[in-house]
Design a protein around this nucleic acid. Structure first.
Length: 219
DNA sequence: CTGTGGATTTGCT
DNA sequence: GCAAATCCACAGG
C-alpha cells in the first residue's frame, strides 16, 4: 500500500517530437526525465541520470558498429526501426534485460539506452524485485542498465515495443521540471566497437550513476 | 581493493 | 562456435 495508484499530476508525458530526432541529440534531453512502470503493487518510478546513444545504420559519419541495428533489422531489434518513443527491451548475457527508447522517424533506427536511475517511487517493491532486504542504498537499486530493469520489473516479453508516450501505457516517460545540469559526456561503457565516440551522457557527480569499466577497444 | 568465472539469449561466422 | 550495450559471488592480497 506504500505505492501510488496514480502518478503525481504534475508529471507530464513527454512530447513525441522530442524523439523524432537523432539519438545523440535526444540523449542529453532524457537526463532528468522520469521512467515510470505501473505494476500490481503500484507505480515504480525513477529519474534518468545516465544514458547512452546508439546510432542507426543510416548514420555513416561516423558509423556505429556497436549498435544492435548496425547490420539491419532482426527479430530482436525490429522495434528500433518503428516509430519513435517506444521501448526497445533486449536480453543480454543470458541474464539481464536492458531498456532503450527508440528515436528517429519510422523506418530509421536509433535508440537511447537507459543506464541508471535515481529511485523516486516504489523503493520497497524495487528492493523486493532485486531480492535485497530493504532499505537498499539507491545505487544498489538502479545504478546499472541490467539492475534497473530488474528493479522496475521490465522484461522483453512484457515490455518490448510499448509506447512510452501514451498516458494509458504501463510504461511511460514523464517530466516534472527537474533541471538536468551539469551534464558530463564520455565514451560509452562495455563496448568494443566505436568505443571512442562521446555518446554517454550523465548527470555529473550523481550518486546513482553506474560504476563502469571500459573495455579493450578494437576500433 | 583487484581479478575471474558463471548465468545461458541472440545473431553473426 | 563465440562474442556481447551485465552483474554478482567469491578468491586472494
Amino acid at each position: 500500500m506504500a505505492n501510488s495508484a496514480k502518478l503525481p499530476k504534475e508529471w507530464r508525458i513527454l512530447s513525441r517530437r522530442l524523439f523524432v530526432e537523432p539519438p545523440e541529440s535526444v540523449a542529453p534531453q532524457l537526463l532528468g526525465k522520469i521512467l515510470a512502470h505501473q505494476t500490481e503493487s503500484g507505480w515504480l518510478a525513477g529519474r534518468i541520470v545516465e544514458v547512452e546513444a546508439y546510432l542507426g545504420p543510416h548514420m555513416t559519419h561516423p558509423p556505429d558498429p556497436a549498435a544492435h541495428s548496425f547490420r539491419g533489422i532482426t527479430d530482436r531489434n525490429r522495434v528500433m526501426f518503428g516509430p519513435a518513443g517506444h521501448a526497445y527491451v533486449y536480453f543480454i548475457y543470458g541474464m539481464h534485460y536492458c531498456v532503450n527508447v527508440t528515436c528517429e522517424p519510422e523506418g530509421r533506427a536509433g535508440c537511447i539506452l537507459i543506464r541508471a536511475l535515481e529511485p523516486l517511487l516504489g523503493l520497497s517493491t524495487m528492493a523486493a524485485h532485486r531480492k535485497l532486504p530493504a532499505p537498499v542504498p539507491h545505487p544498489r537499486l538502479t545504478a546499472g542498465p541490467g539492475i534497473l530493469c530488474q528493479a522496475l520489473g521490465l522484461t522483453r516479453a512484457a515490455h518490448n515495443g510499448l509506447d512510452l508516450l501514451d498516458p494509458a501505457s504501463p510504461l511511460q516517460l514523464r517530466e516534472d521540471g527537474f533541471e538536468a545540469a551539469p551534464i558530463e559526456v564520455t565514451p560509452r561503457i562495455g563496448i568494443r566497437h566505436a568505443a571512442h565516440l562521446p555518446l554517454r551522457f550523465a548527470l555529473s557527480n550523481h550518486s546513482c550513476v553506474s560504476h563502469f569499466k571500459t573495455k579493450k577497444t578494437t576500433v
